[in-house]
Design a protein around this nucleic acid. Structure first.
Lengths: 336, 336
DNA sequence: TTGTATGCGTTATCAA
DNA sequence: TTGATAACGCATACAA
């Protein structure tokens, strides 16, 4: 069954004994075409099950109504929430979303960008891979005419559009909360030093400790490569300190899950011997009997939503062509 | 800076004083073109930063190297794992993934399909919305020349390609496990009755109970609309039964989270007064101090991977054109 | 109000 | 081994 080639404008024209251009205009509600003709054309199009060939239109219009989205990993709640938000904005604006996940691999990321360029996407939204250096992006950005908006994991350079979360505000709230509850020995389990996200956390940690008049002790700051083993190793370092901290900020909730488990193995009781706050505010805490003290919300949907809106504004209205947009949302401590 | 239009084959041809067709052939390593010419062309293309205009190629070739994927909700781990798997297969096969989430809304789903058709995707992968009736899809399928492969949430009709998980095998393992541990009063908290997924669970539950010689008691089967309130309501019914069950199968792990919390409020102690098994095998249980007894794995990546492979085989090699593929993976109980 | 002609960038057919 | 020409489906500038 079926198998017929799709109807074209020409065929409608032939059937109606009018010119293809008239058909084209009628279908697009061009004001110059008479109402009667328009109606006849539309009726015939309906009858013949005409569907415009978008590939032809994309080609002709030099526009695909498609944006590309590059994310490290879709199965991370942060990013799946982000892509949902992007999808919603895209749908509103009648755009479609092309998807690519970098898995934090720089080469994959570059490949995806190439693919997107081939597909002639109208714009790109990207949360950078954690292993991509800023400089690597410079060439690409320079060579690429396609508008790009970064979000969450953004490059540390000027003149690019970016939306991200200010990690410092949440950090200060967290340290304040700890200090309010009498903690003075506060540690930080941070991500890989190469990450901008880690640098920001480290910096914010210092500032927040200083604000509370606590002297900074480098041995209270350890790094993890974010693997399970790395997280446990980091926690071991913390646990074996002579002056063991009573409070701990970690890179994110996933890390905290490992830390808590490891701490428990060592007989450290959560929310008694040691208190935890981390970034992300993943929703699963509400189901835990004994959740960590708090988590810092980074608003993935909000970031993604805003980034998408900026991108579409650039694409549609040609806005922000001279000034790079930079939007920062404060992160916020949520106590559990 | 920049702003120049992309280089075309014609421009390369003009520069080299040869014809566009020669350039085209040279770039595609056509055997009839001399090595020297080919080299010259490629060098010039490189210099002029030529990038083929895929929209033109898509148009001409009547092929977009794009597949559309429709999922209910990306933020559900099941689907984010599925999309990751699909993305991987797509990348291998040099395809790109167009994304749409239905949010279990039938209209959104139909819209997405329309959009995909417009974009002339080469194929569609879909896990159906929980609110879409099978019959609604009949028209679409009939009208659509685009190959479609269903996975996970598949329509209950013949002659469509589908990959799904057999819920019965896991159910039997679960009931067996309960019975082995001495449970006889076993309840089922199922999803909405309208869902095929619910019907299958209900059916499998009966079979498994029968297999263990336990008489089926309809009051031990209640439904939830899968909202938090609905889950609690269902659990209340179970808890207030005169002969309260000691073991419970629930629709999925998310439901179980609510059930456990509600049970706790009523003073029911998990894994003592009542034991739980549900579907999904979400990874978070390993971090819980007192997880439910088990969870039934449905292998989202495996399903999605297979569905994608079938789709690409259809697209690329024109396989399975006469026989609808139907692949079923057994679900499997994983004890915690 | 409608028709004619042209072109978007590429590839394929045919001819040279 | 290469070139000229047409064609994919549509939109639009220009003519009528």
């Amino acid at each position: 069954m079926a198998g017929n080639k799709p109807t074209t404008i020409k065929e409608i024209a032939r059937k109606l004994k009018i010119s293809p251009s008239t058909v084209s205009r009628a279908l697009n509600d061009h004001p110059s075409i008479g109402l009667v003709t328009t109606m006849r054309v539309k009726k015939m199009a309906e009858e013949m099950a005409y569907e415009p060939n978008q590939t032809a239109i994309f080609f002709k219009q030099r526009k695909t109504f498609t944006i590309g989205v590059i994310l490290p990993k879709l199965s991370e709640p942060f990013f799946s929430e982000a892509i949902s938000a992007i999808e919603n904005v895209a749908e509103e604006r009648k755009y479609t979303v092309l998807l690519g996940q970098s898995l934090d691999d720089e080469n994959r990321e570059l490949n995806i960008i190439q693919t997107f360029k081939k597909h002639r996407v109208d714009g790109i939204l990207i949360s950078m891979s954690k292993n991509t250096g800023d400089t690597d992006f410079l060439d690409i950005l320079a060579k690429t005419e396609i508008p790009i908006v970064f979000f969450d994991c953004v490059p540390d350079m000027p003149n690019v559009h970016k939306v991200y979360s200010d990690l410092a505000s949440g950090m200060i709230e967290a340290i304040d909360a700890f200090v309010d509850r009498g903690h003075q020995k506060i540690a930080l389990i941070n991500g890989p030093e190469s990450l901008l996200a880690s640098k920001e956390r480290a910096e914010a940690f210092k500032v927040a400790m200083d604000k509370n008049g606590i002297e900074y002790d480098a041995s209270y700051v350890v790094n993890t490569d974010l693997t399970e083993a790395g997280n446990e190793e980091a926690m071991e370092k913390i646990c074996t300190l002579v002056d063991r901290p009573s409070a701990l900020i970690s890179f994110n909730d996933f890390v905290t899950l490992d830390l808590i488990r490891y701490a428990k193995q060592r007989g450290i009781i959560l929310n008694q011997d040691m208190f935890f706050i981390s970034y992300a505010n993943y929703p699963l805490w509400k189901y835990m009997d004994n959740p960590p003290m708090g988590s810092i919300e980074q608003y993935p949907e909000k970031q993604a939503h805003k980034a998408a809106e900026i991108l579409f504004d650039i694409i549609d209205k040609k806005e922000y062509t001279d000034t790079a947009q930079e939007v920062v949302y404060p992160s916020k401590l949520v106590l559990k």
